[in-house]
């Protein structure tokens, strides 16, 4: 894993092993906030930003905990960092764009429990990425998340005009859509070689 180029790490996190459609991380916002295109895009940006901060912090924390043989505290330390990063983003958005703050609603604090973010931190630790690789990995993961949620929102906006059987409205329809998107993303698997 060490010899991989940064470009491959980015591509791997963004499309080949897309966090949402291939690794099933961050499904809740995918189903919850993908109703409108611009809301979905802002949600994606906020998540990607938290990912970047928390992954950077997680790298430092991991180095610190490893130095003192405290690896069993890793999970707790990571989640604490993520929670504070989310708090930071929440305050920033509330200050600069109150309408956006309202639109994201409950899903903003819920970024804390977005598994994609903890997933980035845990995977980069598992793969033993160094600092630059971690940052590139988290950027790729963020880009992949934005891509997935924006694609999903675009599809759902179109579907609003379609005549769907009443039982398929809502979550079931979204899951089927996600399945088809996920099928499409499997095509990227060949990129990895």
């Amino acid at each position: 894993m060490h010899a991989e180029s940064l470009g491959y790490i980015f591509l791997n996190a963004a499309v080949i092993n897309n966090f949402v459609l291939a690794l099933f991380l961050g499904i809740c916002p995918l189903l919850g906030v993908s109703g409108r295109l611009n809301t979905a895009f802002s949600m994606g940006l906020a998540t990607a930003f938290v990912m970047l901060i928390s992954s950077t912090a997680a790298w430092g924390l991991n180095a610190l905990l490893s130095a003192y043989d405290l690896e069993f505290l890793r999970l707790i330390a990571y989640i604490a960092v993520i929670a504070s990063a989310v708090q930071l983003v929440e305050m920033t958005i509330k200050k600069f764009s109150p309408p956006l703050y309202k639109a994201l609603g409950i899903f903003l604090p819920l970024i804390t429990t977005n598994c994609a973010i903890l997933g980035v931190a845990l995977f980069q630790t598992n793969y033993e990425y160094d600092f630059v690789q971690s940052v590139v990995y988290s950027l790729g993961a963020g880009a992949g998340f934005i891509l997935a949620i924006v694609l999903m929102a675009g599809l759902r906006e179109r579907l609003e005009l379609a005549d769907v059987p009443s039982i398929a409205r809502g979550a079931a329809m979204s899951l089927m859509l996600a399945g088809i998107l996920s099928l499409a993303f499997m095509g990227f698997a060949g990129l990895g070689g």
């Binding site: 291939a22 690794l23 979550a171 899951l175 089927m176 399945g179 996920s182 499997m186």
Partner: peptide, 21 residues
């Protein structure tokens, strides 16, 4: 594979929605 997970869960949700209806 990943798409299967989405499809099967979607199918279960469809089934439950149908029963409810």
């Amino acid at each position: 594979l990943p798409p299967g997970g989405f499809f099967v869960l979607g199918a279960w949700l469809l089934l439950f929605a149908w029963v409810k209806e």
